[in-house]
């Protein structure tokens, strides 16, 4: 989770109805926080934003389904099954995080870490969502007493899916979202601070990358038109990260525990992310 991102500001209150409303003017004044004298204009990327919204909706459909299965296993007291489902269910959420995250109340309800709450002066009792159940499974070693949390998680997930219908996806939301996904990796996944009990951080890592890569894929033709070298560089740098991550894949298509990584491993991954992040942050060139 992070503080208000540009995208959070854009969809604050969440409900800009309809596809491409003509809210251009208000948007512009919101995005122009620092820069003033630069000559930027809104560029219409209707097909791209539409494609991205479809992607996000699909991911959240699957997220709802996967959460349902996870919650069922959890409430059945099937710890093994629940542990198996935990990292993969989360991936749908992590892939579509730029959108999922835009609801200031639902995101923490679903994905807050205890450390986030404590930083805001809240306690374990205020804690809900996936990471609380992660704590139950890996740390507390039981599911009893967490049924309500599980029910609430499913309800919140469904609500998220419903609300996403109303989000208006904008080009800069996509572009900033891609960079945000990488920043998520740089700040919490690479340090093993996302899944501190299950150590399944690499699943989240991979999903964040896939989320960013999807945005790139959608925008790629436009980027190519404007700056072919940038598109090529991005393809190259995504491959770089994915190749590195592949070293940590397990036979069943999952990922090794974060605890298996050495400092050298995490440094190499962090470097690859930074090398991807710089060109990724240049995608905004298509809005010029």
């Amino acid at each position: 989770m992070k503080a208000k991102s540009l995208l959070a500001i854009l969809v604050a209150g969440g409900v800009v109805m309809g596809g491409c409303g003509n809210s251009d003017d208000t948007k512009k004044s919101d995005t122009k926080t620092e820069q003033t004298a630069t000559d930027t204009k809104e560029v219409s990327l209707d097909a791209e934003t539409k494609a991205y919204k479809e992607f996000a909706l699909d991911q959240l459909d699957q997220f709802t389904k996967a959460t349902e299965e996870f919650v069922t296993a959890f409430k059945d007291g099937d710890m093994d099954k629940a542990k198996e489902l935990y990292p993969t269910a989360r991936m749908f959420f992590e892939r579509s995080e730029p959108i999922a995250e835009s609801f200031g109340d639902l995101d923490p309800a679903i994905d807050a870490r205890l450390a986030d709450l404590e930083a805001e002066g809240q306690t374990k009792d205020d804690w809900t969502g996936y990471h609380k159940l992660e704590y139950a499974l890996w740390e507390d070693g039981k599911t009893k007493g967490y049924e309500e949390v599980a029910d609430k998680l499913l309800a919140d997930t469904k609500e998220l899916r419903a609300r996403v219908e109303t989000v208006e996806v904008t080009p800069d939301m996509m572009i900033n979202g891609a960079v945000d996904l990488l920043n998520e990796v740089s700040t919490s996944k690479i340090s093993g601070e996302e899944d501190i009990f299950s150590h399944t951080d690499l699943y989240d890592f991979k999903a964040n990358i896939e989320g960013a890569e999807k945005i790139f894929e959608i925008l790629e033709p436009k980027i190519k038109e404007k700056d072919a070298a940038l598109a090529e560089n991005l393809t190259d740098k995504f491959k770089n990260v994915n190749d590195l991550l592949a070293n940590y894949e397990t036979k069943d298509g999952g990922y090794v525990s974060y605890t298996k990584l050495t400092d050298k491993d995490t440094k190499a991954l962090a470097n690859a992310i930074n090398q991807l992040g710089e060109p990724l942050s240049q995608m905004g060139t298509i809005l010029e």
């Binding site: 820069q35 630069t38 930027t40 942050s281 240049q282 995608m283 905004g284 060139t285 809005l287």
Partner: peptide, 9 residues
């Protein structure tokens, strides 16, 4: 020089 506010400075 930064010319485009949609990319980082």
């Amino acid at each position: 020089e930064t010319k485009n506010s949609y990319v980082p400075p």
